[in-house]
Design a protein around this nucleic acid. Structure first.
Lengths: 262, 262
DNA sequence: CACCCGCCTTAACCCAGGTTAAGGCGGCGC
DNA sequence: GCGCCGCCTTAACCTGGGTTAAGGCGGGTG
């Protein structure tokens, strides 16, 4: 590791942590990733990273900070579809689709890696393991969307809150943030409400109750899961849908081979 | 078109209609699809096509009938994630993932085409247009999931019902079922409730009201959208998320190249 | 024919969670 | 320092939609 590569490696830590969770990432893969042309972009809290209608030419990967994928209705109601943590991709569809059908906003200050679409596709299509890891990441995100539908459709308020806390705790742990009992949740109660389809007043009621019952503790954005088992029991949480234990793939995939359309 | 191909073409009509909506499908593409080794499978109403935990080796495509992707909670509550119409894929993830994290049930009698995974990947990776169409289909499904989250999270009961009716009407039209004002909706009010996160009693109340207000008419499974504009206004429906107007792709994609992992 | 079953329908009652309002607290800009 | 703003908190009140229950209707089956 030389002086030039070192800061980039730090940049890529979250991404590597994510991908490693799905597939074996060796030196060859790491070097290929590090060789990607990339720029760093930063976004302030509340700023839109991608707006509905945008058509970005770069793939963006969260390096640090939290963001939210969301859709707004005309009358001001808005729904968060999913939270994005370091290592998550903003928009894998960038290569196929015309215009984004939803927006993404930075929740905290966010730094992102911007990689030109064609360069990223080249790398991921030339390396089986990376390509596979990318597929897994996509599938995981889809599964998280599905779970979000069930959570908001068929669970009551406290089940929803418990379930979301457990998901985010688990996801934070995967990328090396937080430990077995606590993690930082830089998300206001208003945003939790927008994710769970509830009012922020009611989110407050539920969180208060969890605290009074000794299930969790809160100090600013630090959440301590004091009785994780009770939370799990309360909403019958199972982390299966996060697909954290990748099985050996049935096929080796070269997921995306591209050539310029011109 | 010869006598042997004719019945197969009929088999593939829905799939072709779907794919044609995204990309130009010429004779070459059609022939490639028709050459695929495939079997037909049938499922009875209520029967599970794929159960959570299954790990099928074939890609399944709805040929006729309606199905539903769903997740059940332990206590019997269940949530429909999405409806599957002719031309939809049951499980594109089959090639990468280990076990299905949700189930799919036939709503009506369903016939499906089963295509061995490797054969389908071959075809779709060798033909740019088909590969691209496949990507579009995947993205469309993800977008429908996102819209489902917003619908159930931030809309009230009558908005949800109106929005779902408009979506299903539009999707039925794409595949050549129904016309500008009516379509067949072979879905009981119980299932609509499970899709919209409401009780079937309330679904009935809302549908009754729509009928009394002259917005729709119903006769068995035939739904007539008598005042489509009013329905659209009621829920601010926009079909953008169905991505029906595919723009020319920025890149030409060869989406999946595989070789046996052994 | 009689019975059952799935589905639709409607009414009466009730409660989880929405809405509105008001106050507190900390950070930040002037 | 003061005022503003974002966020949290709590209380009082209200309503959309859940729950329960009961009946109807049509189709299938012995």
């Amino acid at each position: 590791m030389n002086v030039i590569k070192a800061p980039i490696e730090i940049l890529m830590r979250a991404l590597l942590a994510r991908l490693t969770h799905y597939c074996e990432i060796g030196d060859a893969e790491r070097d290929a990733l590090l060789a990607l042309p990339m720029r760093e972009r930063t976004y302030e809290p509340g700023e839109d990273v991608i707006e509905k209608g945008d058509n970005p030419a770069e793939a963006l990967i969260v390096k640090s900070g939290w963001a939210a994928r969301y859709i707004s209705l005309k009358d001001g109601r808005s729904q968060i579809l999913n939270f994005l943590l370091p290592g998550d991709f903003f928009d894998l569809q960038v290569f196929v689709t015309d215009a984004a059908d939803h927006s993404i906003a930075a929740i905290t200050k966010v730094t992102a890696l911007a990689i030109p679409g064609h360069a990223m596709l080249d790398v991921f299509s030339q390396d089986n393991n990376l390509g596979l890891a990318l597929w897994w990441a996509t599938l995981q995100e889809e599964a998280i969307l599905r779970e979000q539908i069930v959570r908001n459709g068929r669970r009551d308020a406290s089940e929803r809150v418990a379930h979301l806390l457990l998901e985010l705790h688990r996801r934070a742990m995967i990328i090396g943030e937080g430990d077995n009992t606590e993690f930082r949740l830089p998300v206001s109660q208003v945003l939790i409400a927008d994710a769970l389809g509830l009012s922020f007043v009611h989110i407050n009621r539920v969180l208060r109750r969890f605290i009074n019952e000794g299930l969790i503790e809160k100090d600013k954005d630090l959440i301590v899961l004091k009785d994780r088992d009770a939370l799990i029991a309360k909403c019958d949480f199972s982390a299966d849908y996060l697909h954290l234990d990748a099985e050996p793939p049935r096929y080796r995939l070269r997921p995306l081979a591209i050539r310029p359309s011109g």
